[in-house]
Every structure is written in structure tokens, then in C-alpha cells.
Design a protein around this nucleic acid. Structure first.
Length: 282
DNA sequence: AGCTCGACCTGCACGC
DNA sequence: TGCGTGCAGGTCGAGC
């Protein structure tokens, strides 16, 4: 269930609990997820110590000693679980990678659909990595503003919904939060991206959209964080429960906006469900 | 060059 | 109960 807020929640959980831990052994129960795992992954991870955990877009970057970074993407269904030294757990069919820590805790990467990714890279070489090099700006950075969004949208003839999902426009926004942000900004998901940008400077719509994206993501992180009490939240699901969506997966519901008597509709754009209110997102 | 769509994979909810 | 269908949080790359 990972868009930026879920990945950020997992990042915090991993960092809080793994900082300083040393990897004693690695079990690779599969040799591929979405892509083949690095052949020497076990040997390169063994003995490394966790120095911190960063996030870029929806990627986790586990910083390890000796200038090594473990890159992980959760795909659609990936999750991390941390087991305490004394904790036992039946092995699941989709537990693909297990990091055994020196203190006998275990970090388990589970991913039924295997759209996830793991790779190793040299710390500092992120921008040269094939999967990271082309990524757009971070939505929660102060530098990402209406001017930046307008620059990215100008001339684009696709829908604003599709443009938001494009990780070159801005990273971290997935199908749920794209729908939610467009609702909050009262912009039709079908509107042409270029028309949100206008011709020069910024537009009111772009300003509303930037502010909606930031607040929707920040609020979701806050909700995820608020339930992050124990290791179970490393699975990333508890935080998700805390969310109540205004439009996503709310087809036929009455619009929650005061004074709007519209209903939530579902359409398909670029092969993906879009939920929006036909009343106030005209 | 930019855009849409298929592909990747499993599980689950639904209708017949 | 069992089977077929469609759908699900992502994103790369083929093909227009």
C-alpha cells in the first residue's frame, strides 16, 4: 500500500529501530523480485552496519557502513516486518528476503506480487542509478512550489491526473493521493495538464494543487506516524487504516464538501481508477 | 518527444 | 463449493 506517506512511515520505523544494527546474515529465498537481486547481495550485506534510512520518492535507501546503500521499493504489495530476538513467526510464502541482525532480531521483506525492487549501490551515486536518475522533485520540499509545478506541466497534453502520477512531474504521489489532492484543489482529473499551468507565471489552480498535494501527503504521514507505536507498523498497514479518503474508493458516496450535492464518480484514466466529485471538481 | 497501454504477479471480492 | 472475471497502492518499456 505504498505511496509516499506509507514509504515515509516505513522509513521512520526502520530508522528508529535499526539504527546502528549490524547485519549478521541474509537469507535470499528468491533470486528475483521485479528484477533479479544482485548476485552478491548476501556477501555485500553481511557485516555491514545500518547508519540511517533515507527516502527518495517511493524508494527506501538504507545507508550502510563502507559506503554501501541498500535500495528498496515496495511495489504495490511490499512490506517490512521486524521480529524481536525472542519472537517467532511462521514463514510466509512471500517472505523473500530476511536480514538477520547481530542481536538476533530479523527484518523480513514480504511482497506477494513481487513488483518490489531491491538493489545495491554506492552511497552518493544515487543520481546515476537507472531507477533514481530521472525522478522529479520531492513534493514536501520547500523548493517545490506552484512555479515548479507549472514549469513541469506547461505544454503537456495529457490529463492533470496522469501528469501527477508521472514521477518526473513530482515524486511520491500515487493513485490514491492524486485523487485526494485533485479533490481538495477542486480540479477535474480530466483537465489538460497544460491548462493547469497557464501560459506564464503561476495560476490559482496550480497554487491550490501544490498546496493540496503537500497537505494531503503531510496529513497522511501524520496519520501513519500517529499509529506507529510498535514494530508492527513496519508493515505499513496500521497507518493506512487511519486514513479516511474523501473520494478514493468512495464511488457513489455523497460529496463531503459542504454545499456540494454531487456524488463521487469512478472513471478510468490511463488504465487506472480515478475517483472524483462531478459536482465540485468541474 | 510524448503519450497510452501492456506487462509483471498474487490475492481477493464478486457473480453465476 | 467452484470457477471465471475484474480489480488492487507502481512503473518500466514497447509501440504508436
Amino acid at each position: 500500500m505504498p505511496e509516499l506517506p506509507e514509504v515515509e512511515t516505513v522509513r521512520r520505523g526502520l530508522e528508529d529501530h535499526l539504527d546502528g544494527a549490524r547485519i549478521a546474515d541474509v537469507e535470499l529465498r528468491r533470486k528475483d523480485l521485479r528484477f533479479p537481486l544482485p548476485r552478491d547481495m548476501r556477501a555485500r550485506l553481511c557485516g555491514r552496519r545500518v547508519l540511517g534510512v533515507d527516502r527518495r520518492a517511493k524508494y527506501l535507501l538504507v545507508r550502510l557502513s563502507d559506503g554501501l546503500t541498500l535500495l528498496a521499493h515496495l511495489g504495490m504489495s511490499g512490506s517490512f516486518t521486524l521480529l524481536q530476538a525472542d519472537e517467532d513467526c511462521e514463514q510466509g510464502p512471500h517472505d523473500h528476503v530476511v536480514l538477520h541482525l547481530e542481536d538476533e532480531r530479523r527484518v523480513i521483506y514480504t511482497d506477494p506480487r513481487r513488483f518490489g525492487i531491491m538493489d545495491l549501490l554506492r552511497t552518493g551515486r544515487e543520481s546515476r542509478h537507472k531507477l533514481l536518475g530521472h525522478l522529479g522533485p520531492e513534493p514536501l520540499d520547500d523548493g517545490w512550489d506552484a512555479a515548479a509545478l507549472c514549469d513541469a506541466l506547461r505544454g503537456r497534453r495529457t490529463s492533470i491526473k496522469a501528469a501527477l502520477l508521472d514521477q518526473e512531474t513530482v515524486v511520491g504521489v500515487g493513485n490514491i493521493y492524486a485523487c485526494e489532492a485533485l479533490f481538495q484543489a477542486r480540479i477535474s482529473p480530466r483537465r489538460m495538464a497544460a491548462s493547469v499551468a497557464g501560459r506564464h507565471g503561476t495560476t490559482l489552480r496550480a497554487r491550490r494543487l501544490v498546496s493540496a498535494v503537500k497537505s494531503v501527503l503531510a496529513e497522511a504521514i501524520r496519520a501513519g506516524g500517529s499509529t506507529l507505536r510498535d514494530f508492527r507498523s513496519l508493515e505499513g498497514e496500521l497507518g493506512y487504516f487511519a486514513n479516511s479518503f474523501q473520494v478514493y474508493d468512495q464511488e457513489d458516496a455523497s460529496c463531503v464538501r459542504q454545499g456540494c450535492d454531487g456524488r463521487v464518480r469512478r472513471i478510468v484514466q490511463s488504465g487506472r481508477s480515478t475517483f472524483y466529485c462531478s459536482g465540485c471538481q468541474g
